[in-house]
Write a protein that binds this DNA or RNA. Structure first.
Lengths: 172, 172
DNA sequence: TATTGTTATACTCTATAACTATA
DNA sequence: TATAGTTATAGAGTATAACAATA
């Protein structure tokens, strides 16, 4: 347990507010573009894009969640929605019968392609227009470090399931 | 209209993903802390914090929205929620009878104080622990610039009301 | 006994459009 | 006629707990 300081200095506050607000504004704008161009929510786009980059366009449900969604049921919900639209398919994994492998379909890739130019345009106009190439590089370096740290940080009360062992005992 | 490039380079992609993911992880963690410590959503916290910093603890509804909420009805909803809990009060403005002035109450300030140490602790552990003071400074500078640019950028289809003039004519 | 994923359910939040009242 | 705010309503998303099936 580290001794947490009483408060933050002005620079820290500035960085925190700017981070939250910039990402919020950006995400809101991108979200709108995605809805207009392809009727996709941001989360759905993230899932499709993740699959699009994955080898074979496939990923197990559990691995897919990573950083995009914070609960299992949330992922199931989104996967179902995408499947109904024919943008992904789901099938039991061959090696582990418990897992489901999600795969992006051709139609899913088409929607991705359809949405992508506008997506890039929003990023250019909103985020990169105000930054020099060197700014972008610096930003990437610092934020990547921050993200990696957060990812491995012990989730305060997260770990949805892993932590529930006690509950079952209490019921008996 | 600028000629938007076909795609982004690897560094830009890295910066974009890191920004979205870092802010998402951070916001999720902070949101949980706020719920546990004071039964506040992140938006509610932002509104209270904004009021806490405002002169007299007051702000007009419209001015309060700024960057926190993206629709008028959304703000009304949150303001009502906070008022029911006694954390803010609302009264017609004296100078303009159309506007409502929202003011943080003593109880609102108490909740803010109750929640604040844990809030700072999360930020320290998750965001600042991985960054040097100089990183934080750099981050603040760049992201502030980005945010300010986004704020003044023409909202593609935003401006909830301002843009609706045509709709009325169509109904006639 | 732990893990993978689904379901049911309840709740929070957001957005649109129609409306009232003041400027 | 434009602005400030509310309401009704509907939809999207999220989380928790209980559940089934596999390892």
């Amino acid at each position: 347990m580290s001794s947490a300081p009483r408060s933050l200095d002005a620079v820290q506050l500035g960085a925190y507010f700017a981070l939250i607000e910039a990402s919020s504004l950006l995400r809101h704008a991108v979200d709108q573009q995605l809805h207009e161009a392809g009727d996709l929510s941001y989360v759905q786009f993230q899932l499709l894009a993740t699959l699009g980059d994955a080898p074979g366009g496939s990923r197990r449900m559990t691995d897919l969640a990573d950083g995009v969604v914070y609960s299992r049921s949330g992922l199931t919900y989104q996967a179902q929605t995408l499947e109904k639209r024919g943008l992904v398919s789901r099938a039991p994994s061959r090696d582990d019968e418990r897992s489901i492998t999600v795969t992006i379909t051709d139609e899913g890739r088409a929607v991705l392609a359809q949405v992508f130019p506008g997506h890039v345009a929003v990023l250019e106009e909103l985020l990169f227009a105000a930054l020099s190439p060197s700014d972008v590089e610096t930003l990437a370096e610092i934020l990547t470090r921050a993200r990696d740290h957060m990812r491995q940080a012990p989730p305060r009360s997260a770990a949805p399931r892993r932590r529930r062992k006690a509950a079952r005992a209490a019921r008996a």
